[in-house]
Design a protein around this nucleic acid. Sequence first.
DNA 1: GCTAATGTTATCGC
DNA 2: GGCGATAACATTAG
Length: 243
Amino acid sequence: MPEGPSIVILKEKVQQFTGKKVIAAGCNNGALDAGLLINKTITGFKSWGKHFLICFPKFTIRIHLMMFGTYRINTHTEKPPRLHLQFADGELNFYACQLQLITEPLNKVYDWKADIMSDKWDTKHAIKKMKAEPALLACDALMNQQIFSGVGNIIKNEVLFRTCIHPESLVAAIPPKKMKELIAKAINYSFEFLEQKKKGTLKKHWQAYHKKECPRNHVPFMVEDTGRSRRASFYCELCQIKY
DNA sequence: GCTAATGTTATCGC
DNA sequence: GGCGATAACATTAG
């Protein structure tokens, strides 16, 4: 159940399998042939936004956990996994996920500058992409995986509240300084999300997402499906300015 | 039992 | 064809 930071956590948790050889594999999905993985050694794990990448010498497996995907490390659930990797001293299982085989070099497939969790994140690049879409709304910009890869509905809501921006603001109308603040907060909150999620205190720190009232004004939050994707936005009419 | 939820993509209709 | 709206998929906690 992941936004970008949760995938970074997954990546950290599976480090023990870097350099390990797959001795058996199962794939409950036509997108991938499990036989391809046998006796192959994992060279590393990467992530791009919500994509989790298992790297082998000549190809990469892309896993997207979508809304409901889960995983188990060195254990499994009663249900058959969509992808099972068996190692000499452990196992890795993924459920309800989307699998894809990538044979092209990753640098060709992914623009690392768009990944909010990457040290290659490029603010100017993001601004440029947003300028290319004059009618873009703030809520849609944040949810756009080509611009803010890794941002999901929680990060969207928390960042818009923290920067006092109405979800349906026209991005083109947001002053440049405010725009930079929005982007900086998106990155900043994503790393807070990472730390809080690790400590199990993520929900406790929500200021807007699924909250009843605005902590600043104590008026009820508006709850509306916003933007092209019609995802729920929780916002305060008083303190979040509509540009 | 029903609903909603950290997501994405395909298809429908105007 | 382009656009937005809708459906589809999948899981589980509340």
